[in-house]
């Protein structure tokens, strides 16, 4: 089953969450480990791009997706799309982790690019335990 983590760019909070899900980093990860994640802060301005991160132990395909600040809107639309096309809703999981990336930091990244990434990595590092808890819940749900 595809599990898609959503954040404004698909390369910050969602990328960290996806890597926590796959066990490629843990809640004790250092800021540098976050900064060195493949594609961290890459593709600025590319909203709507999916990144395949890997497959978990249960065979779920883990993706990230950049949705600008409209993650909740995309979640509603997606489940409605599945409903009216007759596809089972529980065969797809969308998780919004946008709240771990303050909106203004993403804008900062657009302006300061290099330093913006470090700034966001520091913010995510502080929230790592919370993101990990959320990811654990997803894994616990038995998908």
């Amino acid at each position: 089953m595809p599990i898609i983590y959503l954040c404004p760019t698909g390369t910050y909070a969602s990328l960290v969450a996806a890597n926590l899900h796959l066990g490629q980093i843990n809640r004790e990860a250092k800021i540098n480990e976050i900064l060195n994640l493949p594609n961290f802060g890459a593709f600025p301005g590319k909203v709507g791009m999916f990144l395949y991160i890997g497959k978990d132990r249960k065979g779920n395909l883990i993706y990230t997706l950049g949705t600008s600040n409209e993650a909740q809107l995309i979640i509603k639309s997606t489940y409605d799309l599945l409903r009216f096309t007759g596809y089972p809703e529980n065969n797809l999981k969308l998780i919004d982790v946008s709240k771990y990336v303050p909106k203004h930091l993403v804008w900062c990244n657009g302006i300061f690019l290099k330093y913006g990434n470090k700034f966001i990595a520091e913010k995510l590092h502080k929230k790592l335990a919370y993101i990990d808890e959320e990811v654990k819940e997803i894994r616990k749900q038995g998908h």
Partner: peptide
Amino acid sequence: YETIMRSIAGMMEI
């Protein structure tokens, strides 16, 4: 919006 929805549809084999 369309790009995202079409990608998700593709992923779900719609």
